[in-house]
Simulated scan of single mutants.
Amino acid sequence: MSFTTTRSPLRLAAAAAGTTAVLALTLAACGGSEDSAGSSMPGMDHGSHASHSSRSSRSPSSSHATGESGGESGMPGMDHGSMPGAAHGDAAVRDGLADAADGYRLTSGTRKLPASEAGRYAFRITGPDGKPVTAFAPDQAKRMHFYAIRSDLTGFQHVHPVMAADGTWTADLAALTPGSWRMFASFAPDSGAGKGRDYVLSRTVTVPGDAHKAPLPTPATRTEVDGYTVTVKGEPMAGMAHPLTVSITRQGKPVTDLQPYLDTYAHLTAFHEGDQAFAHLHPETAVRGTRGGGPDLSFHAELPEPGKWRLFLQFRTDGKLHTAAVTLRVNG
């Protein structure tokens, strides 16, 4: 399935103010740079910086065209999608688990990435006319958000790729552990039939090697990362909008010096256990000029399925990006 939503006036206003964010129901403990995040938890990979070449103020996402040989290529007419027969339309636009929706398609020639060394994932987004899309609307200061998530949710990276003039995006990734990984591209076309809608499309890649599946940590309301304690408050119900509050403390004291990150004070993304379904959790705490943020951050959570979700929260202090991960149980 693929994921797309129509931007409401509130969402559009939030995007214009740069306050729209992605929330993942797992907080992965890790530090990183502004454009990437990994985790200090065992079995978690650290994110990499977005490509240092051709960076623009509108962050691009990696897009690749796919060839029959499986090699990377920017040429049209390549193999589409990692999910045969990916459907289009509202029946298949949930969770970001398909490579196509409403005529938009994520194409890539990359089916494998190396283990234990940095990798590069290139891709394209093609539109209903089959041509590469090059006009994207900024969402939280970036035109493209790109995520790599391991099948057991123990590996997570969030990077902001760069786009070439031909619509090819390239995402630089830190070393990945062996196993199956899903690559998500989150974007909003700035023209055409999909203008004003948010899309999340994905494909899978394999990292060769001896893969060991790790059990998902048990559901909890708090986690530790880099000396900070992150507490999640709220009891979301599947398929229903629900408020969620994240509080950050350090040595028992409220943290009030959070720095803006992607035009808000925290970025939250969630992935569902088993199928790696993706969910956006949008921030509702506005940046307050030059004042620091915290300790409490509010989010608008809509998690479509019951079960365990892994939540990844990213926030910045003293110029350093921290990534916290926690498992949240969502009731049906």
Rank of each mutant, 00 (worst) to 15 (best):
residue 3 F to D: 01
residue 9 P to C: 04
residue 17 A to N: 13
residue 18 G to R: 11
residue 25 L to W: 11
residue 30 C to R: 10
residue 33 S to M: 03
residue 38 G to Q: 11
residue 40 S to H: 11
residue 43 G to H: 06
residue 50 A to W: 03
residue 56 S to T: 14
residue 64 H to A: 10
residue 64 H to T: 12
residue 65 A to I: 02
residue 66 T to P: 01
residue 67 G to W: 01
residue 68 E to P: 05
residue 69 S to G: 15
residue 74 G to I: 04
residue 74 G to W: 05
residue 75 M to R: 13
residue 78 M to H: 11
residue 78 M to C: 04
residue 83 M to E: 12
residue 94 R to F: 00
residue 99 D to W: 13
residue 106 L to W: 08
residue 119 G to Q: 02
residue 132 P to Q: 12
residue 134 T to H: 08
residue 136 F to D: 04
residue 137 A to V: 05
residue 141 A to Q: 12
residue 150 R to Y: 04
residue 153 L to E: 09
residue 155 G to Q: 14
residue 156 F to R: 14
residue 157 Q to P: 08
residue 169 W to Y: 05
residue 170 T to C: 02
residue 172 D to Q: 12
residue 173 L to E: 00
residue 173 L to Q: 00
residue 174 A to R: 09
residue 179 G to N: 07
residue 183 M to G: 05
residue 201 L to H: 01
residue 204 T to P: 01
residue 208 P to W: 10
residue 218 T to E: 15
residue 222 R to H: 03
residue 226 D to N: 13
residue 227 G to D: 09
residue 230 V to A: 10
residue 235 E to F: 06
residue 252 G to E: 07
residue 254 P to R: 13
residue 257 D to F: 09
residue 258 L to H: 06
residue 264 T to L: 05
residue 265 Y to P: 04
residue 271 F to K: 00
residue 277 A to K: 00
residue 277 A to H: 01
residue 281 L to K: 01
residue 282 H to R: 07
residue 283 P to H: 13
residue 289 G to L: 13
residue 289 G to Y: 10
residue 293 G to S: 10
residue 294 G to H: 12
residue 295 P to V: 04
residue 301 A to R: 10
residue 304 P to Q: 07
residue 304 P to N: 11
residue 310 R to N: 07
residue 316 R to K: 14
residue 316 R to P: 01
residue 321 L to I: 06
residue 323 T to R: 13
residue 324 A to K: 05
